[in-house]
Design a protein around this nucleic acid. Structure first.
Lengths: 212, 212
DNA sequence: GGACTCAGTGAACAAGTGTTATCCCAAATT
DNA sequence: AATTTGGGATAACACTTGTTCACTGAGTCC
């Protein structure tokens, strides 16, 4: 399908992307449920009616933004988990560093996800939940392939993975909320995030030693 | 101050409360940044101009809702932490049960907090962050008074407390998002929440045994 | 090279919005 | 009993909003 690129499709894709970009930028200071169609088209320099050539409504634009924000993240996660040193602390340090780096490069996307995860637009909430669920599956699969996971069943491993994923999202949100230039605050946040991940990991390693 | 109750103040307080109630109800399907002043006054049956007798703008109403939602929770937390059996699993079960019960009784408030924690209205975000910070302090104080906390310094204990608080908020949000009558889904969520708290608690107990 | 497709235009629509100034009248104060 | 206070009503202000419709003109297809 879509056998011919064509000038036409390229131009359409271009203004579609412009709508997404403008929308994301305008969502800096408000949430999706208050973002107006005219507001977006005005920012792009296009007639309000043109919006309907790309999205049926703002909710659809929001769902497209979810894909844009989270779609490219699967590869990152897989890399981070499978790569390199088995040493737990180093893996944690790297995970937090990757998270922090991702926030710097995709600040607006991170804000959007944090804001709309429990936001006022149902289809967007569902899209985010579905995508985070996929992340959880991938993390669970990664955890399962580690020797420490002996004695864990699949269901419990997914719950553990969910804990990691939620923690990652919260950490990203916290970094994003901190003033961009306040290095001390940022260091404090990443320190806390590392510490929390370490606590969870220790709990995982000593899981079978818990009191009956 | 406010030496006389007076019919006047009582009536004022009454419509103020009506504005808060109507606002909270309307926030079921949208977020604060899209909630209109006229929308709220219409729901109460009052003139738009009357709104200004109680709040300078919608952000102020939002901040008031934060107090209403989280202000009464401090006592609950203190009770839950100090009360009863030292047995860890039982404490966890009770904590999750209390959380679930709270969601049932204050569904709209929980939704509001989850939605606006990273929402589009700065003063509201700050109010929520401040209140959750106070919760974290209280939990940290509670943890400090437990024997298991030997060898933990205050800063790290606060980070651990933050992990518990964030987990509680996420659990409440998850319960709230599940269909109200789907008992299976709800049981699955609370099961996961208990398991996750247990992992964290095991990590805490075995903290000093982690590899150098 | 002529027919067709379709992204974007321009204009009009019926509502909706926050905010202000002025007035009213019951409660509070003296 | 006379005066002041202040919560709420009324009405108007100048905009903004989503959606529709027939249209134009460049890109595509045969």
């Amino acid at each position: 399908m879509s056998h011919t690129p064509g000038i036409r499709q390229a131009q359409k894709e271009q203004t579609r992307q412009a709508l997404l970009d403008a929308g994301l930028r305008l969502l800096d200071r408000q949430s999706l449920s208050s973002l107006g169609l005219r507001e977006v088209t005005r920012a792009v320099g296009v007639t309000p009616a043109a919006f309907y050539r790309h999205f049926p409504d703002m909710a659809a634009l929001g769902v497209a933004l979810v894909s844009e924000a989270l779609g490219s993240l699967h590869a990152v996660i897989r890399n981070a988990m499978t790569a390199g040193g088995q040493d737990s602390d180093e893996l944690i340090d790297r995970t937090v560093a990757i998270t922090a780096g991702y926030v710097d490069e995709h600040r607006a996307h991170v804000r959007f996800i944090a804001r709309e995860r429990y936001g006022g637009v149902r289809p967007v909430r569902q899209a985010i939940a579905a995508e985070l669920g996929r992340f959880t599956d991938e993390v669970a699969a990664g955890l399962a392939s580690q020797p420490v996971s002996a004695g864990w069943n699949a269901a419990d491993l997914r719950v553990l993975a969910g804990l990691y994923v939620d923690h990652m999202v919260l950490t990203a949100a916290a970094i994003m909320e901190a003033p961009q230039d306040d290095r001390a605050a940022r260091e404090e946040i990443t320190r806390a995030a590392r510490l929390q991940m370490q606590i969870i990991s220790v709990g995982r390693r000593h899981w079978d030693e818990r009191p009956a």
